[in-house]
């Protein structure tokens, strides 16, 4: 099946790539600019990376961001998986529609409103705002993404596998732990990665939920940008982009290799039978 690579195809591809990657490419190039002025090219240099790694404020913000992302995405994964489990498996119960509506609400409610409502709640409860409240806020909005991913996997899951586990002597919890969880693990992991990413780049909700003691990287960058552009930020962004790119490529390579291996083994089994 060979189709001619027409001019139309080539143009579409080029336009797509330009729109997606031109801003990022410019940002990466300017991070190696030796000039202090962001928009004037003055030769290649890696000095801004050095400046960045000596800037304690950025390092602190990075640490806080990672901590928040790790803890909140783990929390969101646990809560989101539980919610998905109840929605898919528990059948009809009173308030099911309300519960599913509430879980998926953060997908459509504007971040500003989510952030504001969380801020009001924290004030009402008298919680000290800081890293703890940011974690709670991030877990709240990212658990709905986890539950969407996990419940779509659970729907296509052969329920007789769980029944088989019960039949062979598992308690319901043991059946979930030793059969369901290993099988839906890829969905749970991608839910975790998704909420990790969402937490990393969230600005609006963090702004509402944080206090003076905790500043995340997006908050730091945003406040810095308001004071004027700065080549350090380009360097920081380039590092983040490289990390994400490496992660995406690695995970797609791993899953592709696994699916190729699985196909080969299935063909062997067919050939032998």
């Amino acid at each position: 099946m060979s189709r001619r690579f027409s001019w139309f195809n080539a143009t579409s591809l080029t336009l797509g790539f330009v729109f997606l990657y031109l801003p990022i490419t410019i940002l990466v190039i300017y991070s190696f600019n030796s000039s202090k002025l962001v928009t004037v090219w003055a030769g290649f240099s890696t000095k801004w990376y050095g400046v960045l790694f000596r800037d304690q404020a950025y390092l602190d913000a990075a640490v806080i961001t990672l901590k928040v992302a790790l803890v909140s995405s783990t929390l969101a994964t646990i809560l989101g998986t539980m919610a998905a489990w109840v929605l898919v498996r528990a059948g009809r119960f009173r308030g099911r529609t309300l519960f599913s509506g509430m879980i998926y609400a953060p997908l459509v409610v504007p971040d500003v409103i989510t952030g504001l409502s969380l801020l009001l709640l924290f004030i009402a409860l008298g919680l000290n705002r800081g890293i703890g409240t940011i974690i709670l806020a991030h877990a709240t909005f990212s658990m709905c993404y986890v539950s969407v991913v996990v419940s779509s996997r659970l729907v296509s899951f052969d329920q007789s596998l769980e029944e088989a586990a019960l039949d062979l002597g598992c308690s319901p919890f043991d059946a979930f732990r030793s059969v369901t969880l290993p099988i839906i693990a890829p969905a749970v992991v991608s839910g975790w990665l998704l909420s990790f990413t969402l937490s990393l780049d969230d600005l609006v909700i963090s702004t509402f939920a944080s206090g003076p003691s905790a500043t995340t990287l997006p908050m730091k960058i945003y406040s810095q940008v308001r004071l004027g552009l700065n080549p350090e930020i380009n360097a920081l962004s380039t590092i983040l982009i490289s990390l994400v790119t490496i992660g995406v490529i690695a995970s797609s390579l791993i899953s592709k290799r696994a699916s190729v291996r699985r196909q080969r083994q299935e063909q062997q089994a067919l050939a032998q039978s």
Binding site: D158, S160, E163, A164, A165, L166, D167, L168, G169, V179
Partner: peptide
């Protein structure tokens, strides 16, 4: 079901 001396072979086989 997990306390019954009964085991079942499923139509889909339900192999883990």
């Amino acid at each position: 079901p997990n306390k019954r001396p009964v085991n079942m072979m499923f139509q889909s086989y339900a192999l883990f």
